[in-house]
Amino acid sequence: MASNDLDLGVWTRDLVRSFGERTILDRITLTIPPGQFVALLGRSGSGKSTLLRALAGLDHDVEGSGVLRVPAKTAVVFQDSRLLPWQRVLTNVLYGQPRARGAAGRALLSEVGLAGRERAWPSELSGGEQQRVALARALVGAPDLLLADEPFGALDALTRIRMHALLRDLVQRHTPTVLLVTHDADEAITLAQRVLVLDDGRLTLDLPIDLPAERDPGEPEFQRIRRTLLSALGVVPAAIR
């Protein structure tokens, strides 16, 4: 159902996805300009991953009165790195990219801090290193849209902080449009230029994030935005002080 969009952004109108009698996405209308970094925040079961799968072209049963437009060159990063265990790291980076050369794969591995690990097996890498390979694989084809479905959700806190800095640097360097699905308000504020809240299949909040590139969670404005997002998620005030 997805078609090419010449402006390399994302556009949906009245997007609907139902499973039996349950509506997961309820008339989603969304525009993401080219190059914008958007975080999609929501509770478990709110429809976040369903929307991402629709944008990725992995769900062909979405409906809508309009159309779903995304760039032709789209890449996805999942919470699980989904590396091929029987292939070495460089082969994993180049997998599915017939036009990508070994030099491009090695350059991306260097960018993600894994120079010299081209011939390693995935089992020899830590969880954070495997996600670095997944990011390199997603970017080696120079996508115009990068979709990330809770890519750091399985990592420990310190590794997540490092991965946030890495993703920020990679996006600045490669300039794709980004939609990051997360359930972590702090992660959304740390990385995104704009945060959407999805609740019961509907977009209930669309909040621009006007903060410096380097963001301090201790700053008053960061905390104000955090309270706004958590309130939109239904978190009671006593729990967010």
Rank of each mutant, 00 (worst) to 15 (best):
T23N: 00
I24Y: 01
L25F: 12
L25T: 04
D26P: 09
D26N: 14
D26Y: 04
D26A: 03
D26V: 00
R27S: 13
R27W: 02
I28G: 02
I28M: 03
I28Y: 07
I28S: 03
I28H: 06
T29L: 02
T29F: 09
L30F: 06
T31R: 15
T31Q: 12
P33H: 07
P33Q: 08
P33Y: 04
G35N: 05
G35C: 09
Q36G: 08
Q36S: 12
F37M: 03
V38C: 10
V38I: 12
A39F: 04
L40M: 12
L40S: 01
L41H: 09
G42A: 05
G42Q: 05
R43G: 14
R43I: 00
R43T: 09
R43Q: 13
S44V: 11
S44C: 11
G45D: 08
S46V: 09
S46A: 15
S46E: 02
S46F: 09
S46T: 07
G47L: 01
G47M: 01
K48T: 07
K48H: 03
S49Y: 10
S49R: 13
S49W: 11
S49H: 12
T50V: 14
L52N: 04
R53Y: 13
A54F: 03
L55H: 11
L55R: 11
L55S: 07
A56V: 13
G57K: 12
L58S: 05
D59C: 11
D59P: 12
D59N: 14
D59W: 12
H60S: 15
H60L: 14
H60Q: 15
D61R: 15
E63M: 15
G64H: 14
G64E: 12
G64S: 14
G64I: 05
S65P: 05
S65F: 10
S65A: 14
S65E: 15
V67T: 15
L68F: 10
R69W: 11
R69L: 14
V70F: 07
V70L: 06
P71V: 10
P71E: 08
P71M: 07
P71F: 07
P71S: 06
A72Q: 15
A72K: 14
A72H: 13
K73S: 15
K73N: 13
K73P: 00
V77P: 01
V77G: 02
V77M: 04
F78C: 05
D80P: 03
D80G: 07
D80V: 04
S81D: 13
S81L: 00
S81G: 06
S81E: 03
S81V: 00
S81T: 02
R82T: 00
L83A: 01
L83S: 05
L83G: 03
L84F: 15
L84H: 07
L84D: 13
L84W: 13
L84V: 08
P85I: 12
P85H: 11
P85K: 09
W86K: 05
W86R: 11
Q87M: 15
V89L: 01
V89G: 00
L90A: 09
L90Q: 03
L90T: 06
T91Y: 10
T91I: 11
T91D: 15
T91G: 05
T91V: 14
N92V: 04
N92G: 08
V93E: 06
V93A: 05
V93G: 04
L94Y: 08
L94K: 06
Y95E: 10
G96Q: 07
Q97I: 09
P98Q: 12
P98A: 10
